[in-house]
Amino acid sequence: MTFEQFIFYVLAAMAVVSGFMVITVRNPVKAALWLVLAFISTAGVWIMAQAEFLGLVLILVYVGAVMVLFLFVVMMLDINLAKLKEGFTRYLSLGAIAAIATFGMMYMVLGPAHFGLEVTGAPVVHGPDYSNTAAIAVPLYTTHAYAFVLAAVLLLVGIVAAIALTIRRRAPKEVLYQNIDKQVKTQASDRLRMVKMEAVVEKDLPEKEEESK
């Protein structure tokens, strides 16, 4: 076993173990942290395969941004776990059988017989001046430009959907909104009104009021 293979197996084992821990640990915060480890080890595998740009993006985007956000959500929501885990053991045996059967069949297809080194050949080893970033970027903005724009549309739809589903339009009485157009356009004459008033002349109080009562 070469040193590269050794590293690969360590990273792969870490990915599998942490993936397993994600779905078995009770505490959701710990599960999220295990998921972070799974991402990091997968990023390591990618870097081993000379896809260093993808590996770094995985760490930056998923570990750095998505998972941190996810952790915040998990901590803020404080989900009741006992309730979520109900029925876990009830379906465990059936689920396990299905999972093992699926795994067995997938192994037959995805195993060394069809994806082994003899079938696919050894991966190409690139020289030091090979840029993984350019290899991804050039097709992304040229041959796959149409798909790239569509992916942007998909994100836009996601934003519209998320906002449409969460925005709360509260009654104007409840919240005071600023009307910036109105504020900017305001002139002194709108706010200040000069009123011409008659001079007030004090009248004498009726003197005999008390007596009349």
Binding site: L150, V153, L154, V157, G158, V160, A161, A164, L165
Partner: peptide
């Protein structure tokens, strides 16, 4: 794109 619009 179609499915996401429909979910929302």
């Amino acid at each position: 794109i179609m499915s996401l619009s429909m979910y929302a």
